[in-house]
Simulated scan of single mutants.
Amino acid sequence: MPADLAAPDTARDDALGVVSAHAGNRRHGSTYALWWCGLALVVVLLAWLSLFVGARPVSATQVWDALFAYAGSSDRDQEVVVGYRIPRALLAVVVGAALGMAGSLIQRLMRNPLGDPQILGVNAGASFAVAIAVGFLGLTSMWSYIWFAFAGAVAAMAIVYGLGSAGRGRITPVRVTMAGVAVTAVLTGAVRGIGLLNPDAFDALRIWEVGSLVGR
């Protein structure tokens, strides 16, 4: 085929490829938008259902009135919804979003789909610092040992990164993951040991690890 005839065909194929790529990107964008909308609706639905859950039964009418026709503290049911359950639901959404963002950031920074705070020693470092604060320093308030948890998480991550980058060769996600597993095992054993030696510390650690939205 002559070159002057082949050139238009090549240009046409390139143009069709660009159009197909744009169409594929639009389809993927629409799919992601639908997924996000669906997940947002699920979150809203769960938050709405949580307003009915608790030790005190509250009807749908009372929940609706508490949201749009609040009568003040004179109505006990509405006070329960406004004073306790709505803040609890909003806090649950914020905490869930924060945890999801933290996990996503760790995966992006480590370039590792297995990058999880539990695997990389972040949770174990925080638990170990809280165990020290409760078991040896006698701290019992969340606002007093939350800073220990933050410092322990940072220190554990630094240790994991240092172990993963030690030795010959460049740092890889696999090396960091293996270092995180080792640090997690050591710190978890230390936390359990402190809990066995100090029952009060064990109870505080159990409550801290499970977590709660009550009174927050």
Rank of each mutant, 00 (worst) to 15 (best):
L99I: 11
L99V: 09
M101R: 10
G103V: 06
G103H: 02
I106R: 01
Q107M: 09
L109C: 06
L109R: 02
M110Y: 02
R111H: 14
R111L: 11
N112C: 08
N112G: 10
N112E: 08
N112V: 09
P113V: 09
P113R: 07
L114D: 03
L114E: 01
L114N: 03
G115I: 06
G115Y: 06
D116I: 04
P117K: 00
P117Q: 03
L120V: 14
G121K: 00
V122Y: 06
N123W: 02
A124N: 07
G125V: 07
G125F: 07
A126W: 01
S127E: 06
S127T: 04
F128I: 12
A129N: 09
A129K: 07
V130P: 04
I132M: 15
A133P: 08
V134Y: 06
V134K: 05
V134P: 05
V134I: 15
G135H: 09
F136S: 15
L137H: 14
L137C: 14
L137I: 10
L139H: 10
T140V: 14
T140H: 15
M142G: 14
M142L: 15
S144I: 07
Y145M: 14
Y145E: 13
Y145A: 13
W147S: 15
W147Y: 13
A149Q: 09
A149C: 14
F150R: 05
F150S: 06
A151Q: 11
G152V: 06
A153T: 12
V154Y: 10
A155L: 13
A158N: 04
A158E: 11
I159S: 04
I159E: 01
V160L: 03
V160A: 02
Y161H: 05
Y161D: 04
G162Y: 01
L163W: 03
G164C: 00
S165F: 01
A166F: 11
A166Q: 10
R168P: 06
R168Q: 10
G169D: 12
R170C: 02
T172W: 01
V174Q: 11
V174R: 07
V176N: 00
V176S: 00
V176K: 01
M178W: 01
A179R: 02
A179L: 00
A179I: 00
G180M: 00
A182F: 03
A182M: 04
A182S: 03
V183I: 07
T184P: 05
A185M: 08
V186N: 04
V186M: 06
V186G: 03
L187I: 12
L187T: 10
T188R: 12
T188N: 15
A190C: 15
A190T: 12
V191K: 10
R192K: 14
G193H: 14
I194M: 11
I194N: 11
G195P: 11
G195W: 11
L196W: 15
L196Y: 15
L196C: 08
L197P: 04
P199A: 13
A201C: 09
F202S: 10
D203H: 10
A204Q: 07
A204M: 04
L205P: 02
L205I: 06
R206C: 04
